[in-house]
Simulated scan of single mutants.
Amino acid sequence: MQTVTSARHLSTWQGPAAAGLAVLLWALVPLLAGLAEALPPLRLACLALLGGALATLPMARGRPQEPPLSGGSWWWVHLGVPLLIVGAVGACFAALRLAPVAEAALITYTWPLLFLLASEWLTRRRLRPATLGGSALAFAGAALLVAPEALAGGLSGAWGGYLLALLTAFCWALYSLVCGRPGLGLRRRLPRLLLIASLITGAASLGVEGRISAPDAQALLAAAALGLGPYGLAMLAWERALQDPRGRRLGNLAHGVPVLASLFLVMAGMTTADWRLPVAAALVMAGSLAASR
């Protein structure tokens, strides 16, 4: 009896613990990407995804065998999902180079709100007023941070980075929707999907960024940390959290990522503690929580 009770108690905390771990690791992405600035964005994405594939292999192999996929589902999982990962990771690293890191990170981390909007539309075929109001508040926070820099630079400024950050947010929102679908078994297949995504970004890097040069030790360590944490353990943990019966509520924890990411950047001295940064992060978080009530 004691064993059964302990198992139930532990299982109660598995979902929240997994979501919290994913949020903490994702908040480190801008900081780690800044430490790996010696690597071109696509090459960094290739190494990070390769590290993620290696990091998730032992845990994924411990899972029970997933049922086989049908023809259409097989192609979607093994081609569509890696392309979403490539779009999310590659666009994120490029955005952090082309735009100020704090602003780009804040736009990137609006993906939980986009995920909420998409999932509510798919479920209800309409959006509640609270969802629309909270979304407007969150995007107003992003605009508060981005608008001065964007308007000062005009069309030749950081608009490319902002658009890539928005593409990152869309890709992560779609990836989260796919994770919530039963029967796909992404956790078991995650190492393979990350490896396919790494090969795609590697090929794109050779075509776009040219020949390979040996990076320095700091860049390699940062790339390895990105693979082990945000694109390895965090992706397994997030998929586990979304499969929890409370997955919709646990997903709200992701709204805290921009606040943590901004805090890490300020602590590391990679961005200044401008008054707009905490205000914008608070507006994004408050709007996201209001939309998800």
Results as ranks from 00 to 15, higher is better:
174 L>E: 12
175 Y>D: 05
175 Y>W: 13
176 S>M: 09
178 V>L: 10
178 V>C: 12
180 G>N: 12
182 P>N: 12
182 P>L: 11
182 P>W: 14
182 P>V: 10
183 G>N: 12
185 G>A: 12
186 L>Q: 14
187 R>F: 02
188 R>N: 06
188 R>D: 05
188 R>V: 03
189 R>G: 04
192 R>E: 15
192 R>T: 15
196 I>L: 15
196 I>G: 03
197 A>K: 09
198 S>M: 10
199 L>P: 05
199 L>N: 09
200 I>F: 13
202 G>R: 13
203 A>Q: 11
205 S>N: 11
205 S>P: 07
206 L>T: 05
206 L>W: 14
207 G>N: 06
207 G>I: 03
208 V>P: 02
208 V>H: 07
209 E>R: 12
209 E>P: 08
209 E>S: 11
210 G>M: 13
210 G>Q: 12
210 G>D: 08
210 G>H: 13
210 G>Y: 11
210 G>L: 07
214 A>C: 01
215 P>E: 07
215 P>S: 12
216 D>C: 05
216 D>I: 05
216 D>V: 05
218 Q>H: 08
219 A>R: 04
219 A>F: 03
220 L>I: 12
220 L>P: 08
220 L>D: 05
221 L>N: 00
221 L>R: 07
223 A>P: 04
224 A>E: 04
225 A>Q: 01
226 L>T: 05
226 L>C: 06
227 G>S: 00
227 G>M: 03
227 G>F: 00
228 L>N: 10
229 G>I: 03
230 P>H: 00
231 Y>C: 00
231 Y>T: 01
232 G>C: 06
233 L>V: 14
233 L>C: 06
233 L>K: 01
234 A>N: 01
234 A>H: 02
236 L>S: 00
237 A>S: 11
238 W>I: 00
239 E>N: 05
239 E>D: 15
241 A>V: 01
242 L>P: 00
243 Q>C: 03
245 P>F: 10
246 R>C: 04
247 G>D: 03
247 G>L: 03
248 R>A: 06
250 L>P: 08
250 L>G: 07
251 G>E: 07
252 N>S: 12
253 L>D: 04
254 A>Q: 07
256 G>E: 00
257 V>R: 00
259 V>M: 14
261 A>I: 06
262 S>K: 04
264 F>W: 15
264 F>L: 15
265 L>T: 09
266 V>L: 10
267 M>T: 11
268 A>Q: 11
268 A>C: 11
269 G>T: 01
269 G>I: 04
270 M>T: 02
270 M>F: 15
